Amino acid sequence: MNTLSVRKLEKTDTEALLTFEIRNREWFESQIDARAPSFYSLQGVTDHIECYLSGFATGTWHPFVIEDAIEGIVGRANLKDINSPKGCAEVGYRVDQRFCGQGLATLALKHLIQEAQTHWNLTQLVAHVYKNNIGSRKVLERCGFLIEHESWIDNTKDECRLILSI
Rank of each mutant, 00 (worst) to 15 (best):
T106D: 08
T106S: 13
W120N: 02
N83D: 14
L104W: 09
K110G: 05
I70Y: 11
A105W: 01
G103I: 05
D96F: 01
P85Y: 07
A69H: 01
A116E: 00
R94T: 02
T106G: 05
N78D: 14
E90G: 09
G59D: 06
V91I: 15
L107P: 01
K80S: 04
Q114L: 11
L109M: 10
P63I: 04
S84A: 14
T106R: 11
P85M: 10
G92E: 15
D96V: 02
R76I: 13
Q97Y: 02
L112G: 00
T60S: 15
A77W: 11
Q114P: 03
A105Q: 01
K86S: 12
S84T: 15
H62D: 14
A77D: 09
E90K: 08
I70K: 14
V95L: 08
I70D: 14
R94V: 01
H62S: 10
G75F: 04
I66C: 08
E90Y: 14
P63C: 08
F99T: 03
G92I: 13
P63F: 07
K110P: 04
T118S: 14
T60R: 09
K110V: 06
H111K: 12
C100R: 02
K110F: 08
E90V: 06
G72V: 10
I113G: 00
I66D: 04
V91M: 10
N83Y: 12
W120M: 12
Q117D: 05
I82C: 00
A69S: 08
L104Q: 06
I70Q: 13
C88D: 04
T118V: 11
T123A: 07
Q97C: 03
F64Q: 02
P63E: 02
K86H: 13
A89S: 15
V95N: 05
A108G: 09
I82Q: 01
V74H: 08
N83P: 05
F64H: 04
G87S: 12
A116G: 09
G75V: 09
Q117W: 03
C100E: 02
K80M: 08
Q114E: 09
R94A: 04
N78P: 13
N121L: 10
I70F: 09
N78H: 14
A108K: 05
C88G: 01
W120D: 01
T58C: 13
V65K: 06
E115M: 10
D96M: 01
A69K: 02
C100H: 01
V91F: 11
G87Y: 05
I66F: 07
W61I: 06
